[in-house]
């Protein structure tokens, strides 16, 4: 490990990706993960600490065609209060409302939440069921290169993503959901927020005459990354949301996840909750 040698606060995206070229850079956004992690010695600083907060291209929430783009620096508070998000992505607002505390929502960014890649990251579950794509920028040669990838393929392990060391996350893109789209989020815990999810569940799909299609189900805190539950999705796809379907899907969900025991809960309890809450949420969706 190299010792921290430089502090850099670029004011443009070009400067930032240029700096990232050698890959020996620690990126700082809101700092709500980085500060405690570095102070406890859980992460070591790279050669350069780069504060990305002064890069205009990373902020803002905008409607671009049929997608909503949320800049990487958008804070949780900005997201939950933004009219576009409130109108089109209420499930994301719901998740943001269960996120940490007001102070942390004011500081923490969505880019940070994505890059921190915690299996319990609260925005990640709604983003997964909303088919979000992650925008990345880098400078392979001398030119800015931007591309995106589905969030569902982005995570590889706790704190690990497919983003290379030379890449910066610039934002997320979320297709504007159709009119008959329904989505729900649930975070299990005794507090309204300021609590790491014991489990969290996101369910989304298009509801047509009681039948759910384009089903998306995602679970948090039951695997090394936030995960899509494909078997559960299949069990629901194109089916009328009746009691039998719901029970079957909930049972499949329970078998589909392989959580671990930790200080917050046992694997057994997590599986039970995946079952019970999936059932409960699907019941709510059926009534939507």
């Amino acid at each position: 490990m190299t010792e921290l040698k430089h502090y850099y606060a670029p004011t443009s995206l070009d400067q930032a990706v240029e700096c990232l070229k050698d890959g020996d850079v620690t990126i700082l956004a809101g700092g709500t993960d980085l500060t405690p992690q570095s102070q406890a010695g859980r992460i070591k600083f790279k050669h350069t600490l780069m504060n990305i907060r002064h890069i205009p291209q990373l902020s803002g929430i905008t409607l671009e065609g049929d997608e909503i783009r949320i800049g990487a620096l958008a804070t949780i508070t900005e997201i939950m209060e933004h009219p576009l998000v409130k109108q089109h992505l209420p499930v994301l607002v719901e998740a943001c409302d269960h996120f940490a505390s007001d102070q942390i929502r004011n500081a923490g960014t969505i880019g940070g939440n994505i890059c921190n890649a915690s299996p319990a990251g609260d925005t990640l579950i709604p983003l997964l069921v909303l088919d979000a794509r992650v925008e990345l920028a880098s400078m392979p040669e001398d030119k800015l290169y931007r591309h995106s990838m589905p969030l569902s393929t982005f995570f590889v392990g706790p704190g690990k993503t497919r983003k290379s060391l030379c890449e910066l996350v610039t934002g997320v893109r979320i297709p504007v959901p159709a009119a008959n789209h329904v989505a729900r989020f649930y975070k299990l815990g005794t507090r309204p927020a300021l609590d790491i999810s014991t489990i969290s569940i996101g369910v989304a799909g298009c509801l047509n005459g009681g039948v759910l299609s384009q089903v998306r189900v995602a679970f948090g805190a039951v695997a090394p990354t936030p995960v899509r539950a494909e078997q559960t999705e299949q069990a629901l796809e194109g089916k009328p949301l009746d009691a039998a379907t719901i029970e079957k899907a909930a049972a499949i969900a329970r078998d589909e996840v392989h959580p671990i025991d930790d200080v917050r809960a046992s694997a057994w309890y997590r599986k039970e909750m995946i079952h019970n809450i999936t059932k409960r949420i699907l019941g709510h969706v059926a009534q939507a």
């Binding site: 005794t190 507090r191 309204p192 300021l194 609590d195 790491i196 200080v263 917050r264």
Partner: peptide, 14 residues
């Protein structure tokens, strides 16, 4: 759990 993250004091909403 030597921290407030996992040692849970009651918070205002509770």
């Amino acid at each position: 759990n030597p921290n407030f993250r996992d040692y849970k004091l009651v918070t205002a909403p509770e």
